[in-house]
Nucleic acid binder design. Structure first.
Lengths: 336, 336
DNA sequence: CTGAAAGCGCTTACAG
DNA sequence: CTGAAAGCGCTTACAG
């Protein structure tokens, strides 16, 4: 069985009575081998439990059969769904996936993380984090590592892009609140100012109000942070206004959950006194009470698309850069 | 700058006017180099942007500087915290971490995933999934890959172990409900029967009741699944009993959230008519209403400990197998 | 249909 | 303090 020391391709060749060349070709299928020889080799591979050394193979082929995903926070449910989608496709293609964290603040800096990944000679990188400088992106591309960026535009840098239709999703949500449900004063709580995807989502909110002929009131828009705490702070500000809103849409679900906290604390019925809507449809969105009306952020499907794009490129696709946009989907629950 | 083709160690040697041997030693620090030479080499490395090829290095050193984590579900918050803890330590030691999913049902089978990882010659594996056969574990150990198992006992297989004090945690929780809060009929909703960590947690429940002199009533224990749906089904069963419980402790938070659903739907006040407690302290536990009384599952710290153990072993520690147990911590919130 | 041999880019005894 | 050279285990032109 597994004696001391690993089984090498020469061991298989000896056991099967052929050259290492032939063993290699049986395994890769890159050259025809007679049925009898193939059977002997396959038997030896199986009997000895041979598995090619990836370092040796990688040194020859200049591939690592490994792709990377960079996200700001690996515990964020959106990012784990993303990772799951990538892994699903990668696993089927015998690629390993490494997920790396490059926090928006604190922890390893993005350029350091990217440098580590290019040092590892990954075959491809999915960049699921905003805020990369153009120079860093160009360095990835120049190193020969394929790149897929998430949530941005094709013109913003090298590589392909996958994104959800965020502006359209938020617009559809707000149009529903204003049109079907008849809310008149719809407020908006954004995340950190200038941080995506807050801008895209705000744009949808703005478009919907404009299309309905409503004014976008500055006193009903507040930017805090993409957290529950941000939602609490934002809700307090909006509700303390001279004319508070009758509905609040939030840049993400965590913010909306913070708004629910404040509503409960102030004894406001949701959606009776205040309608609340989020964005992303995280797990917790259906666990809070009332359950959150929100827009699906198709994280898993974004991951799948990104992995497919990367794999096509690794396989040699040299066509022009592509941008894949995934449709939005509004989920109506109890909160709005 | 980065012309065509990657910078190799010979390029650095040529630029610095020394041998590749010296370049290698400057980088590794494994041999004294004169200050002047060192400076020339470091300058060349920096100027050319040299990064050693990991495949070539790995082929020589027989290391991949990569460790793996195997979990049943990478989107489960407990597992992402685990991964975050491992990555935190691994990153500081220049190790890459790959997280692989081997679902309890459907998807890639555990032996196939483990085979893929040993084929990749990982330096170490953290096994965060139950249900591995002894033979599979022995194969990992025999392949020279260091192993840390989570949530089991040292006697169950090769390698080191890290686990939380689950039985003690559940026992402390139930003792609080019975002792301080005075609940008399405390029910238990478990996950899938026979699936850990359900057994450990049930044992804590059992011990607490026994210590308080309460009988463990079979009609107050039900095994469903570690999901919100499982909690709903379990709650329905318990509440339809001739003498329903006045409190329910659950094998995890998702189950407890399912119980809250049923309580709300039936108009039962929590904790007035029915106290509810969970286990794990996932994010959603503090988002539901009332917020869940639960026990912290120190996932991140378990990850950190596992990574440290693995790194010690990779560094050459050959001492006897170790079992690290992390203390429990009950979190009292509104639900019980 | 098959094999002998070069070479991928490192690290590390060995030698001085 | 420094260097020439072997060799890690593969894949793949090249040759027949």
């Amino acid at each position: 069985m597994h004696g001391s020391g690993r089984v090498k391709i020469v061991d298989v060749a000896a056991a099967a009575g052929v050259s290492v060349t032939t063993v290699s070709h049986v395994i890769s299928g890159r050259r025809p081998v007679s049925a009898a020889t193939r059977a002997r080799v396959e038997d030896a591979v199986h009997r000895l439990g041979y598995q090619a050394d990836p370092s040796a193979r990688g040194l020859r082929t200049q591939r690592t059969d490994t792709i990377g995903l960079v996200v700001p926070d690996i515990t964020n449910p959106f990012n784990t769904e993303l990772a799951a989608g990538i892994q699903e496709i990668a696993y089927a293609h015998d690629l390993l996936t490494v997920v790396c964290e490059a926090p928006m603040s604190g922890g390893p800096q993005l350029p350091a993380v990217l440098r580590q990944l290019t040092a590892r000679r990954l075959d491809g990188i999915v960049l699921g984090r905003f805020g990369a400088r153009r120079a860093d992106l160009d360095l990835i591309a120049a190193s020969g590592t394929r790149l897929v960026r998430l949530g941005t535009r094709i013109a913003d840098g090298p590589g392909d892009v996958v994104r959800g239709a965020e502006t359209e999703g938020m617009r559809a949500l707000v149009e529903h609140l204003v049109g079907e449900r008849g809310y008149r004063r719809v407020g908006f709580i954004g995340g950190e100012p200038g941080v995506e995807p807050g801008g895209e989502r705000y744009e949808g909110y703005r478009q919907a109000l404009a299309a309905a002929g409503h004014a976008v009131l500055p006193e009903l828009t507040v930017w805090t942070g993409f957290t529950r705490e941000g939602g609490r702070a934002g809700a307090a500000r909006l509700l303390d206004a001279a004319q508070p809103p009758d509905a609040v849409v939030c840049a993400n679900d965590l913010i909306a959950i913070g708004v629910l906290d404040v509503a409960r604390q102030r004894g406001l019925a949701v959606p009776g006194n205040l309608a609340v809507a989020g964005y992303d449809d995280i797990d917790a969105a259906s666990m809070v009470s009332p359950a959150l009306t929100t827009v699906v952020n198709p994280a898993r499907e974004i991951g799948r698309s990104a992995a497919r794009l990367l794999i096509d490129r690794i396989a040699g696709d040299t066509g022009p850069a592509r941008e894949v946009v995934l449709a939005h989907q509004v989920v109506l629950r109890g909160s709005a």
